[in-house]
Amino acid sequence: MNIFRLAGDMTHLFSVLVLLLKIHTIKSCAGISLKTQELYAIVFATRYLDIFTNHISPYNTIMKLIFLGSSFSIVWYMRYHKIVRRSYDKDQDTFRHYILILPCLILALLINEKFTFKEVMWTFSLYLEAVAILPQLVLLQRTRNIDNLTGQYVFLLGAYRALYIVNWIYRYFTEDHFVHWITWVCGLVQTLLCADFFYYYFQSWKNNMKLQLPA
């Protein structure tokens, strides 16, 4: 495992930890899109179907369990925890996320590496992950005051995929390891969707001002 992959995994892990910290200790999920969190739960559930059959390393298995467990517990907290759910911006979080699921599924059935159940589900998870951030970005744009933890969460989530792209380039040259073009395209789309956010995130950081996205 190279440094870029590790850094990518760690930023991904930190993004989840930041979100859990906000929910668990501050008991607030203000500014967080439940729609995006539900999509991530589906992403991990469909991507890690091989978790018990395809053993790579203890590291991989533990990380998969963390991402599965955290994504489903975040959804549970936001929907059912009696204090946390009160802070959910239900009226603002209106992106109809289910309309993303069907096109991703159809695309996965049409364009995949191999037409098997596990491969199609894996490809579906890539397509869905690429666009899963959209409800969160829409909610951010509607939120007047984005708190620090929410801003950091989205930043870390975007940085994770950007670092994975650097990892793929590195692996291409050093290991002769080819990542399928589907993975490349999805990773690029996912990172580009965050690029606009990155711009405003760095601006607010540079000027030491509160993060706010233009309407």
Binding site: H12, S57, N60, E113, E119
Partner: peptide
Amino acid sequence: SSNGGLKDEL
């Protein structure tokens, strides 16, 4: 070599 089926990333 392609990662054909072996997904070692997360």
